[in-house]
Write a protein that binds this DNA or RNA. Structure first.
Length: 411
DNA sequence: TCTGGGGTCCTAGGACCC
DNA sequence: TCTGGGGTCCTAGGACCC
Protein backbone atom coordinates (compact mmCIF):
# COMPACT_ATOMS: atom_id res chain seq x y z
CA UNK A 1 0.00 0.00 0.00
CA UNK A 2 1.55 3.34 -1.03
CA UNK A 3 2.26 5.83 1.74
CA UNK A 4 0.33 9.08 1.40
CA UNK A 5 2.51 11.96 0.21
CA UNK A 6 3.15 14.27 3.15
CA UNK A 7 2.05 17.88 2.77
CA UNK A 8 4.88 20.18 1.83
CA UNK A 9 6.22 22.23 4.71
CA UNK A 10 8.57 25.00 3.64
CA UNK A 11 10.29 27.49 5.91
CA UNK A 12 11.70 30.88 5.00
CA UNK A 13 14.27 32.13 7.49
CA UNK A 14 15.34 35.76 7.38
CA UNK A 15 17.98 37.21 9.67
CA UNK A 16 16.83 40.37 11.50
CA UNK A 17 18.64 43.55 10.31
CA UNK A 18 21.53 41.22 9.57
CA UNK A 19 24.55 43.50 8.94
CA UNK A 20 23.53 45.91 11.67
CA UNK A 21 22.98 43.09 14.16
CA UNK A 22 26.43 41.65 13.41
CA UNK A 23 27.93 45.08 14.06
CA UNK A 24 26.07 45.31 17.39
CA UNK A 25 27.70 42.06 18.48
CA UNK A 26 31.05 43.72 17.89
CA UNK A 27 30.08 47.09 19.36
CA UNK A 28 27.58 46.27 22.12
CA UNK A 29 27.73 49.88 23.35
CA UNK A 30 25.64 50.80 20.30
CA UNK A 31 22.70 48.62 21.31
CA UNK A 32 19.45 50.57 21.15
CA UNK A 33 21.01 53.47 19.22
CA UNK A 34 20.17 54.40 15.63
CA UNK A 35 22.95 52.84 13.54
CA UNK A 36 23.25 52.65 9.76
CA UNK A 37 25.67 50.55 7.73
CA UNK A 38 26.89 51.72 4.35
CA UNK A 39 29.33 53.81 2.37
CA UNK A 40 33.05 53.32 1.94
CA UNK A 41 35.89 52.41 4.28
CA UNK A 42 36.70 55.86 5.56
CA UNK A 43 34.36 55.96 8.55
CA UNK A 44 35.47 52.99 10.61
CA UNK A 45 35.34 53.49 14.42
CA UNK A 46 38.51 54.84 15.98
CA UNK A 47 39.83 53.42 19.25
CA UNK A 48 40.67 56.32 21.56
CA UNK A 49 43.36 56.55 24.24
CA UNK A 50 40.81 56.03 27.04
CA UNK A 51 39.79 52.70 25.51
CA UNK A 52 36.42 53.86 24.20
CA UNK A 53 35.57 53.98 20.52
CA UNK A 54 34.73 57.05 18.56
CA UNK A 55 32.05 56.43 15.95
CA UNK A 56 31.33 58.43 12.82
CA UNK A 57 27.99 60.24 12.70
CA UNK A 58 25.74 60.32 9.70
CA UNK A 59 25.73 64.16 9.68
CA UNK A 60 29.37 64.27 8.56
CA UNK A 61 28.99 61.92 5.62
CA UNK A 62 29.95 63.18 2.17
CA UNK A 63 29.69 60.87 -0.83
CA UNK A 64 27.43 58.72 -2.96
CA UNK A 65 26.90 55.75 -0.70
CA UNK A 66 23.55 54.28 0.26
CA UNK A 67 22.31 52.56 3.40
CA UNK A 68 22.85 48.83 3.27
CA UNK A 69 21.13 48.09 6.58
CA UNK A 70 19.74 50.18 9.43
CA UNK A 71 19.01 49.11 13.01
CA UNK A 72 15.38 49.15 14.09
CA UNK A 73 16.15 52.26 16.19
CA UNK A 74 17.36 54.01 13.02
CA UNK A 75 14.38 52.84 10.98
CA UNK A 76 12.21 54.76 13.43
CA UNK A 77 13.65 57.92 11.81
CA UNK A 78 12.46 56.79 8.42
CA UNK A 79 15.86 55.71 7.13
CA UNK A 80 16.07 52.33 5.46
CA UNK A 81 18.01 50.20 2.98
CA UNK A 82 18.69 51.87 -0.36
CA UNK A 83 18.35 55.43 0.92
CA UNK A 84 21.27 57.70 0.01
CA UNK A 85 23.46 58.41 3.05
CA UNK A 86 23.32 62.17 2.43
CA UNK A 87 19.53 62.02 2.46
CA UNK A 88 19.56 59.81 5.52
CA UNK A 89 21.78 62.35 7.30
CA UNK A 90 19.02 64.93 6.94
CA UNK A 91 16.57 62.57 8.69
CA UNK A 92 18.86 61.16 11.38
CA UNK A 93 22.01 63.32 11.66
CA UNK A 94 23.06 61.78 14.98
CA UNK A 95 22.79 58.19 13.83
CA UNK A 96 26.05 56.23 14.01
CA UNK A 97 27.54 55.36 10.63
CA UNK A 98 29.54 52.16 10.18
CA UNK A 99 31.26 50.84 7.05
CA UNK A 100 30.21 47.49 5.57
CA UNK A 101 32.39 44.52 6.50
CA UNK A 102 31.35 41.73 4.16
CA UNK A 103 33.99 39.33 5.42
CA UNK A 104 32.45 39.44 8.87
CA UNK A 105 28.89 39.08 7.54
CA UNK A 106 29.91 36.09 5.42
CA UNK A 107 31.38 34.48 8.52
CA UNK A 108 28.11 34.84 10.43
CA UNK A 109 26.21 33.75 7.33
CA UNK A 110 28.12 30.47 7.30
CA UNK A 111 27.54 30.04 11.03
CA UNK A 112 23.77 30.40 10.88
CA UNK A 113 23.39 28.30 7.73
CA UNK A 114 25.50 25.49 9.19
CA UNK A 115 23.41 25.57 12.36
CA UNK A 116 20.23 25.22 10.30
CA UNK A 117 21.66 22.42 8.12
CA UNK A 118 22.51 20.43 11.24
CA UNK A 119 18.75 20.26 11.94
CA UNK A 120 17.30 20.32 8.43
CA UNK A 121 19.69 19.58 5.55
CA UNK A 122 17.54 20.74 2.61
CA UNK A 123 18.54 24.40 2.54
CA UNK A 124 18.32 26.83 -0.38
CA UNK A 125 20.64 29.83 -0.28
CA UNK A 126 18.92 33.12 -1.04
CA UNK A 127 21.80 35.43 -0.40
CA UNK A 128 23.82 36.24 2.67
CA UNK A 129 20.99 36.60 5.18
CA UNK A 130 18.10 34.38 4.12
CA UNK A 131 17.33 30.79 3.22
CA UNK A 132 14.48 28.46 2.39
CA UNK A 133 14.31 25.13 4.20
CA UNK A 134 12.28 22.07 3.21
CA UNK A 135 10.88 20.64 6.44
CA UNK A 136 8.50 18.16 4.77
CA UNK A 137 10.46 15.05 5.67
CA UNK A 138 11.80 16.21 9.04
CA UNK A 139 10.51 13.76 11.68
CA UNK A 140 7.70 15.28 13.70
CA UNK A 141 7.29 18.34 11.49
CA UNK A 142 3.88 17.23 10.22
CA UNK A 143 2.52 16.85 13.77
CA UNK A 144 2.37 20.57 14.58
CA UNK A 145 2.75 22.18 11.17
CA UNK A 146 6.47 22.68 11.82
CA UNK A 147 6.17 24.90 14.90
CA UNK A 148 8.55 22.92 17.10
CA UNK A 149 11.12 22.64 14.31
CA UNK A 150 10.77 26.36 13.65
CA UNK A 151 11.49 27.11 17.29
CA UNK A 152 14.43 24.71 17.25
CA UNK A 153 15.85 26.42 14.14
CA UNK A 154 15.60 29.86 15.75
CA UNK A 155 17.25 28.60 18.93
CA UNK A 156 20.05 26.93 16.96
CA UNK A 157 20.70 30.11 14.97
CA UNK A 158 20.83 32.15 18.17
CA UNK A 159 23.14 29.66 19.87
CA UNK A 160 25.51 29.69 16.92
CA UNK A 161 25.56 33.44 16.32
CA UNK A 162 23.87 35.41 19.11
CA UNK A 163 21.55 36.75 16.40
CA UNK A 164 17.78 36.55 16.01
CA UNK A 165 15.90 35.67 12.88
CA UNK A 166 12.30 35.56 11.69
CA UNK A 167 10.74 32.43 10.25
CA UNK A 168 7.67 31.75 8.15
CA UNK A 169 6.42 28.19 7.69
CA UNK A 170 3.76 27.41 5.08
CA UNK A 171 3.13 24.94 2.23
CA UNK A 172 5.38 26.88 -0.20
CA UNK A 173 8.20 29.37 -0.68
CA UNK A 174 6.00 32.25 -1.80
CA UNK A 175 3.79 32.16 1.29
CA UNK A 176 6.67 31.51 3.68
CA UNK A 177 8.56 34.52 2.32
CA UNK A 178 5.51 36.68 3.05
CA UNK A 179 5.03 35.15 6.50
CA UNK A 180 8.59 35.59 7.73
CA UNK A 181 7.87 39.34 7.59
CA UNK A 182 4.74 39.14 9.71
CA UNK A 183 6.30 39.18 13.16
CA UNK A 184 9.74 40.73 12.67
CA UNK A 185 12.07 40.78 14.54
CA UNK A 186 12.44 37.38 16.21
CA UNK A 187 9.16 36.08 14.79
CA UNK A 188 7.72 32.69 13.97
CA UNK A 189 4.63 32.59 11.77
CA UNK A 190 2.79 29.52 10.55
CA UNK A 191 0.13 29.69 7.89
CA UNK A 192 -2.04 27.16 6.09
CA UNK A 193 -3.82 27.35 2.76
CA UNK A 194 -7.25 28.02 4.31
CA UNK A 195 -5.91 31.23 5.91
CA UNK A 196 -4.78 32.87 2.66
CA UNK A 197 -7.89 34.95 2.15
CA UNK A 198 -7.86 36.27 5.70
CA UNK A 199 -4.13 36.91 6.20
CA UNK A 200 -2.55 37.28 2.75
CA UNK A 201 -5.17 39.04 0.64
CA UNK A 202 -5.16 42.28 2.68
CA UNK A 203 -1.44 42.82 1.92
CA UNK A 204 -0.32 45.19 -0.86
CA UNK A 205 0.39 43.31 -4.11
CA UNK A 206 3.98 44.61 -4.20
CA UNK A 207 4.80 42.56 -1.10
CA UNK A 208 4.84 39.48 -3.34
CA UNK A 209 8.37 38.47 -4.24
CA UNK A 210 8.47 39.13 -7.98
CA UNK A 211 6.16 42.15 -8.10
CA UNK A 212 8.51 45.11 -8.22
CA UNK A 213 7.87 48.86 -8.60
CA UNK A 214 7.05 48.64 -12.33
CA UNK A 215 4.56 45.81 -12.08
CA UNK A 216 3.03 47.35 -8.95
CA UNK A 217 2.45 50.63 -10.80
CA UNK A 218 0.84 48.86 -13.76
CA UNK A 219 -1.38 46.88 -11.40
CA UNK A 220 -2.37 50.05 -9.60
CA UNK A 221 -3.36 51.58 -12.94
CA UNK A 222 -5.79 48.67 -13.26
CA UNK A 223 -7.15 49.44 -9.81
CA UNK A 224 -5.34 46.47 -8.26
CA UNK A 225 -3.64 47.36 -4.97
CA UNK A 226 -3.94 44.40 -2.63
CA UNK A 227 -3.14 40.74 -3.18
CA UNK A 228 -6.87 40.16 -2.76
CA UNK A 229 -7.58 42.60 -5.63
CA UNK A 230 -5.11 40.62 -7.71
CA UNK A 231 -6.72 37.31 -6.78
CA UNK A 232 -10.12 38.67 -7.79
CA UNK A 233 -8.86 40.16 -11.07
CA UNK A 234 -10.01 38.63 -14.35
CA UNK A 235 -7.24 36.21 -15.40
CA UNK A 236 -7.85 37.15 -19.04
CA UNK A 237 -7.08 40.78 -18.16
CA UNK A 238 -3.84 39.80 -16.43
CA UNK A 239 -2.80 37.64 -19.38
CA UNK A 240 -3.51 40.36 -21.93
CA UNK A 241 -1.80 43.05 -19.84
CA UNK A 242 1.27 41.20 -18.62
CA UNK A 243 1.73 38.42 -21.14
CA UNK A 244 0.99 34.73 -20.83
CA UNK A 245 3.92 33.87 -18.60
CA UNK A 246 3.90 36.70 -16.07
CA UNK A 247 0.10 37.10 -16.19
CA UNK A 248 -0.47 33.48 -15.27
CA UNK A 249 2.14 33.70 -12.55
CA UNK A 250 0.49 36.81 -11.04
CA UNK A 251 -2.84 34.99 -10.84
CA UNK A 252 -1.32 31.89 -9.25
CA UNK A 253 0.76 33.94 -6.81
CA UNK A 254 -2.25 35.89 -5.60
CA UNK A 255 -3.96 32.60 -4.77
CA UNK A 256 -0.88 31.46 -2.87
CA UNK A 257 0.02 28.77 -5.37
CA UNK A 258 3.72 28.03 -5.81
CA UNK A 259 5.17 24.59 -6.60
CA UNK A 260 8.84 25.64 -6.81
CA UNK A 261 11.09 23.15 -5.03
CA UNK A 262 13.76 24.06 -2.52
CA UNK A 263 16.97 23.94 -4.58
CA UNK A 264 20.02 23.05 -2.55
CA UNK A 265 22.67 23.65 -5.21
CA UNK A 266 23.02 25.83 -8.29
CA UNK A 267 25.94 26.75 -10.51
CA UNK A 268 26.71 30.46 -10.87
CA UNK A 269 25.72 31.92 -14.24
CA UNK A 270 27.89 35.00 -14.11
CA UNK A 271 30.48 36.73 -11.96
CA UNK A 272 30.97 40.48 -12.08
CA UNK A 273 32.74 43.49 -10.62
CA UNK A 274 31.55 47.05 -10.81
CA UNK A 275 32.34 50.38 -9.24
CA UNK A 276 30.64 53.74 -8.91
CA UNK A 277 33.05 56.65 -9.18
CA UNK A 278 33.33 59.36 -6.57
CA UNK A 279 32.51 61.83 -9.32
CA UNK A 280 31.22 61.32 -12.85
CA UNK A 281 34.05 60.70 -15.30
CA UNK A 282 34.37 61.69 -18.92
CA UNK A 283 35.70 59.03 -21.28
CA UNK A 284 38.14 61.39 -22.96
CA UNK A 285 39.03 63.97 -20.32
CA UNK A 286 39.33 61.40 -17.52
CA UNK A 287 40.89 58.68 -19.62
CA UNK A 288 43.92 58.60 -17.36
CA UNK A 289 41.68 57.50 -14.47
CA UNK A 290 39.23 55.38 -16.41
CA UNK A 291 41.68 53.13 -18.20
CA UNK A 292 43.44 51.79 -15.10
CA UNK A 293 40.08 51.49 -13.34
CA UNK A 294 38.84 49.18 -16.07
CA UNK A 295 42.05 47.18 -15.86
CA UNK A 296 41.69 46.85 -12.09
CA UNK A 297 38.14 45.56 -12.45
CA UNK A 298 39.33 42.97 -14.97
CA UNK A 299 42.14 41.87 -12.67
CA UNK A 300 39.74 41.57 -9.75
CA UNK A 301 37.29 39.62 -11.91
CA UNK A 302 40.04 37.26 -13.07
CA UNK A 303 40.92 36.74 -9.41
CA UNK A 304 37.29 35.94 -8.58
CA UNK A 305 37.10 33.44 -11.44
CA UNK A 306 40.32 31.73 -10.36
CA UNK A 307 39.31 31.61 -6.69
CA UNK A 308 35.91 30.13 -7.51
CA UNK A 309 37.29 27.81 -10.17
CA UNK A 310 35.50 29.06 -13.29
CA UNK A 311 36.44 30.23 -16.75
CA UNK A 312 34.25 32.45 -18.91
CA UNK A 313 33.52 32.57 -22.62
CA UNK A 314 31.43 35.77 -22.66
CA UNK A 315 32.93 38.96 -21.31
CA UNK A 316 30.70 42.00 -20.93
CA UNK A 317 30.86 45.56 -19.70
CA UNK A 318 28.25 47.70 -18.00
CA UNK A 319 28.20 51.48 -18.01
CA UNK A 320 25.94 53.79 -16.08
CA UNK A 321 25.84 57.33 -17.39
CA UNK A 322 25.29 60.47 -15.35
CA UNK A 323 21.60 60.35 -16.30
CA UNK A 324 21.44 56.83 -14.82
CA UNK A 325 20.93 55.19 -18.19
CA UNK A 326 22.56 51.76 -18.28
CA UNK A 327 24.27 50.30 -21.33
CA UNK A 328 25.74 46.83 -21.66
CA UNK A 329 27.92 45.27 -24.35
CA UNK A 330 29.29 41.78 -24.45
CA UNK A 331 31.58 39.66 -26.53
CA UNK A 332 31.71 35.90 -26.81
CA UNK A 333 35.22 34.57 -27.21
CA UNK A 334 36.29 31.52 -29.20
CA UNK A 335 37.32 29.81 -25.97
CA UNK A 336 36.92 30.08 -22.23
CA UNK A 337 39.32 32.30 -20.37
CA UNK A 338 40.17 33.33 -16.84
CA UNK A 339 43.10 35.47 -17.85
CA UNK A 340 43.02 39.11 -16.78
CA UNK A 341 44.66 40.34 -19.98
CA UNK A 342 42.21 38.48 -22.21
CA UNK A 343 39.32 39.81 -20.15
CA UNK A 344 40.78 43.30 -20.37
CA UNK A 345 41.10 43.09 -24.14
CA UNK A 346 37.57 41.82 -24.58
CA UNK A 347 36.26 44.58 -22.29
CA UNK A 348 38.18 47.11 -24.37
CA UNK A 349 36.56 45.77 -27.53
CA UNK A 350 33.14 46.11 -25.92
CA UNK A 351 33.88 49.66 -24.84
CA UNK A 352 34.62 50.66 -28.44
CA UNK A 353 31.01 49.90 -29.34
CA UNK A 354 29.57 52.45 -26.90
CA UNK A 355 28.86 56.11 -27.52
CA UNK A 356 30.86 57.79 -24.77
CA UNK A 357 29.57 61.33 -25.12
CA UNK A 358 27.95 61.46 -21.69
CA UNK A 359 29.83 61.32 -18.42
CA UNK A 360 30.08 57.95 -16.72
CA UNK A 361 28.95 57.19 -13.20
CA UNK A 362 29.66 53.47 -13.07
CA UNK A 363 31.81 50.95 -14.83
CA UNK A 364 31.51 47.20 -14.53
CA UNK A 365 32.89 44.00 -16.06
CA UNK A 366 31.04 40.72 -16.19
CA UNK A 367 32.05 37.15 -16.98
CA UNK A 368 29.24 34.97 -18.31
CA UNK A 369 28.94 31.61 -20.09
CA UNK A 370 30.90 30.06 -17.25
CA UNK A 371 32.47 26.63 -17.21
CA UNK A 372 33.96 24.92 -14.21
CA UNK A 373 37.70 24.66 -14.56
CA UNK A 374 37.48 20.99 -13.61
CA UNK A 375 35.06 20.34 -16.48
CA UNK A 376 37.25 21.85 -19.17
CA UNK A 377 38.92 19.01 -21.02
CA UNK A 378 42.38 20.48 -21.14
CA UNK A 379 42.44 23.77 -19.30
CA UNK A 380 45.87 24.58 -20.68
CA UNK A 381 45.23 24.42 -24.36
CA UNK A 382 42.37 22.77 -26.22
CA UNK A 383 39.67 24.16 -23.95
CA UNK A 384 40.96 27.60 -24.72
CA UNK A 385 42.77 28.71 -21.60
CA UNK A 386 45.84 30.01 -23.26
CA UNK A 387 49.01 29.56 -21.25
CA UNK A 388 49.90 32.75 -19.46
CA UNK A 389 53.45 32.42 -20.75
CA UNK A 390 52.12 33.06 -24.25
CA UNK A 391 52.99 36.45 -25.64
CA UNK A 392 50.23 39.02 -25.59
CA UNK A 393 50.34 39.27 -29.39
CA UNK A 394 49.85 35.51 -29.80
CA UNK A 395 47.05 35.51 -27.31
CA UNK A 396 45.33 38.40 -29.04
CA UNK A 397 45.62 36.57 -32.35
CA UNK A 398 44.21 33.40 -30.79
CA UNK A 399 41.16 35.35 -29.68
CA UNK A 400 40.93 37.20 -32.94
CA UNK A 401 41.37 40.48 -31.14
CA UNK A 402 43.63 43.36 -31.94
CA UNK A 403 46.21 44.12 -29.29
CA UNK A 404 46.18 47.59 -27.86
CA UNK A 405 48.03 49.36 -25.13
CA UNK A 406 47.60 47.83 -21.75
CA UNK A 407 48.16 50.24 -18.90
CA UNK A 408 50.02 48.85 -15.93
CA UNK A 409 47.73 48.04 -12.99
CA UNK A 410 47.81 50.46 -10.09
CA UNK A 411 49.12 49.24 -6.78
C1' DT B 1 21.72 67.04 -0.76
C1' DC B 2 19.01 61.54 -5.44
C1' DT B 3 19.86 56.50 -6.06
C1' DG B 4 25.81 50.53 -4.16
C1' DG B 5 27.32 46.02 -5.71
C1' DG B 6 26.35 41.42 -6.98
C1' DG B 7 23.24 38.45 -8.93
C1' DT B 8 18.94 35.83 -11.78
C1' DC B 9 15.56 35.42 -15.30
C1' DC B 10 12.91 36.93 -19.36
C1' DT B 11 12.21 38.95 -23.94
C1' DA B 12 13.28 39.91 -28.52
C1' DG B 13 15.67 40.44 -32.87
C1' DG B 14 19.13 38.93 -36.09
C1' DA B 15 22.52 35.57 -37.82
C1' DC B 16 23.10 31.17 -39.31
C1' DC B 17 22.14 26.31 -40.20
C1' DC B 18 19.29 22.42 -41.64
C1' DT C 1 14.42 31.75 -57.82
C1' DC C 2 11.28 31.90 -54.17
C1' DT C 3 9.11 30.29 -50.11
C1' DG C 4 8.77 27.87 -45.43
C1' DG C 5 9.73 26.48 -40.67
C1' DG C 6 12.51 25.13 -36.67
C1' DG C 7 16.47 25.40 -33.70
C1' DT C 8 20.52 27.49 -31.60
C1' DC C 9 23.64 31.13 -30.63
C1' DC C 10 24.67 35.90 -29.79
C1' DT C 11 23.59 40.41 -28.19
C1' DA C 12 21.01 44.20 -25.61
C1' DG C 13 17.90 45.70 -22.46
C1' DG C 14 14.92 45.47 -18.53
C1' DA C 15 12.61 43.87 -14.25
C1' DC C 16 13.52 42.15 -10.04
C1' DC C 17 15.93 40.42 -5.75
C1' DC C 18 19.26 40.53 -1.64
Amino acid sequence: MPMPTPKRLIAHLDMDAFYASVELLRYPELKGLPVVIGGGRDHAPVLQSDGTRRFARLRHYVGRGVITTATYAARAFGVNSGLGLMKAAALAPDAVLLPVDFEQYRRYSRLFKDAVRAIAPLVEDRGIDEIYIDLTEIPGAQDDGGRAIGQALKAAVFDATGLTCSVGITPNKLLSKLCSEFDKPDGLTLLQEDEIAQRIWPLPAKRINGIGPKAAARLEALGIRSIGDLAAADPALLLSTFGAHYGAWLHAAAHGRDARPVVTFSEPKSISRETTFERDLHAVRDRAMLTPLLTELCIALAGDLARKGYASRTIGIKLRFDDFRIVTRDLTLPAHTMDARSIRRAAGECLKRVDLTRRLRLLGVRAGALARLADLVNPGASAGLLPSAMKAEERAAAYGLPLFDMPAPRD
